[in-house]
Design a protein around this nucleic acid. Structure first.
Lengths: 347, 347
DNA sequence: CCTGCGGTGGGAAACGGTTCGAAGACGCCC
DNA sequence: GGGCGTCTTCGAACCGTTTCCCACCGCAGG
């Protein structure tokens, strides 16, 4: 096996920093500096090196980076193990921001508490990462001292934490906006609440915050929400279908329904259509999340800036990784009411 | 900051192989051989080294292993992004087997096709692992040539693939067993089928195989299954609730329901209880999966040896990693009927 | 013309492991 | 007693990066 002939193609042995250096006629240190955006490189040199990297398809080996530099340029993202589009969008945002800073991410689905603890303590995993982004759960509060047993920086997203930086949505505000909107339409108001035990391992509070804000705004307007106007279900479209059935037993159309999540709102719409009721007139439905498909289904919703929140979280983490000190910072985001056919008479 | 005093505790700087070697009075090569179960170590030496490793809390750095040895002793597990207990159990099995061989795993939730392709091609991730275990989807068939674009070994679990080793359950057999059992009870038979688009990114075939076997066995017994005796829903307990509602519109109790998944069967049970019907007599319910909680809920089910399948998949992968050649091997597993109160008259 | 200095670039050392050639210890045989 | 395997063990070399020290360059100032 003479290794005289280079095989820099996407084959078994990838090109190394030495290959790049040689081909570009510079030293390995210079290549490293280019990779790490060090300012101490002349623009022409940088361009030349980058061209060679491109040509050779060079990608720095993260394991080597980790071992040499102490950092892996990788962050772990801990996310609930539920299949919703929300997390897809959130990751989109996180990844966009991390990518610009040449960071990678490793996903860690939160399947069980046991697994989480193994992840955090036993260091044997592939998750030897520089920092953590935790989505949707305030994991910190379930550990003694209110802090995760790790010395790496942590940022919360879609959740607020006292102990760590966080980027979160004002869910209660969303509930209040929902109340205002539905009240303006006139007619009785109902709500679909969602069980917090998302995946029977961890509990989130977003849904109760949404319904809480809703209830509060209604009360302030002098229209309290009766208990039987609230239906609780697990997170599924079918739960929304059942909810509307119940509501129709109590009340003849027209009626207004606020669902704490778009998926559930979709079920309400499905059930209405199946019952031959006109959505937007006889049954008005307002969801929450702003999932992409709500536009084509004509579903009114409270849109949250998911990608933006993801980016914000990633940015905060990177700043911490670069040494920023100081008390936890919190970025608050607001949902935006998007009115579509499902809460508008006719088209 | 004199570093004269060692801090081998679980602090910032973990002990290295050199620390262990020094403390044990051996060379680093010997320590490495102990770590890797090389036979060329005297038992007493091995014991001594292991004692020191224990004492120091030494864990080999996977990045260093990867860089030095070419392997990372880590395998990726690709799994659908749905929050079911099935995957928890599957991972339990996989992890048990891998752990015995000193391998770690990195989870990769299959959120979208786009993300999968990035994972497989762009090598920049932390997922520089030695092999892949793919759960539930025959991902291979969606790539040109019917093979994943990777040269690392691949094993399928809970799915069968022509191109790769696989450990899978005979779902059709489960359906047939279900049919036999329900027929023996007497009375009309219904089925709840589940949408294959588990998480709207990838499609699985397990549910249609289950219902397929069910239908086939019924037909053979001369009791074909009418179309309106099959209700389709997404995977959720509420879907089961709605299904029973529909069935009760067509048929007065007693009736028998086979649900293609335990979660859905649970919904059927819930709906029956809410309607004041006696489960096991007026409504008989049979699930599929053998989730741990079925025991306490008295739900009859087709139990699958999930952990065992996971172990089998991991074992096959490790063998491949150790150089085993040859055509794809397939391990077939069979579900086992567990009869409980939900398909038994009285207690 | 010499000196000093900021801006660049080169490459040795280090990171924490694996691997492999070499060497020591020991027992056996002639 | 010397020759020769076998069984263990040692530690240097290496994996692909980062980091740091030093050298070099060109230019302004004395």
């Amino acid at each position: 096996m003479g290794n005289g002939s280079k095989t820099p193609k996407n084959g078994r042995n990838a090109p190394t920093i030495a290959d790049v250096a040689e081909r570009a006629g510079v030293g390995i240190g210079t290549v490293s500096r280019v990779i790490n955006n060090s300012p101490a490189v002349r623009p022409e040199t940088r361009a030349k090196v980058q061209a060679v990297m491109e040509e050779l398809g060079y990608v720095p080996n993260p394991h080597a980076r980790r071992i040499a530099g102490g950092r892996s340029y990788t962050v772990s993202v801990l996310l609930p193990f539920v299949g919703t589009e929300f997390y897809l969008r959130l990751l989109e945002g996180i990844e966009a921001e991390l990518g610009e800073q040449r960071y990678d991410l490793a996903l860690f689905p939160l399947l069980s508490k046991q697994r989480l603890e193994r992840f955090l303590s036993s260091s044997a995993l592939a998750y030897h990462t520089d920092g953590l982004i935790v989505a949707s759960y305030d994991l910190a509060e379930r550990f003694p001292g209110g802090r995760l047993p790790t010395d790496r920086p942590v940022v919360m997203v879609d959740a607020r934490s006292e102990a760590y930086d966080s980027a979160y949505l004002d869910n209660a505000l969303g509930g209040r906006l929902a109340a205002e909107h539905l009240l303006a339409l006139g007619g009785p108001v109902f709500a679909v609440q969602i069980e917090e035990e998302l995946d029977r391992a961890f509990a989130s509070t977003v849904f109760s915050a949404r319904i809480g804000g809703f209830r509060e705004a209604l009360a302030q307007a002098g229209v309290p929400l009766p208990e039987d106007h609230v239906f609780r279900t697990r997170l599924s479209a079918e739960g929304g279908q059942i909810a509307l059935q119940r509501f129709l037993e109590l009340q003849r159309p027209p009626l207004n329904v606020f669902a704490a999540a778009d998926v559930v709102a979709l079920g309400v719409v499905e059930a209405a259509e199946r019952s031959g009721l006109e959505v937007g007139r006889e049954v008005r439905v307002l969801g929450f999340d702003g999932q992409p498909w709500t536009a084509t289904r004509g579903l009114s919703t409270l849109e949250q800036p998911v990608e933006t929140m993801g980016r914000a979280a990633a940015r905060m983490l990177i700043e911490r990784l670069q040494g920023t000190k100081g008390p936890p910072r919190h970025e608050r985001f607001e949902p935006r009411l998007v009115v579509r056919a499902s809460t508008q008479i006719g088209s």
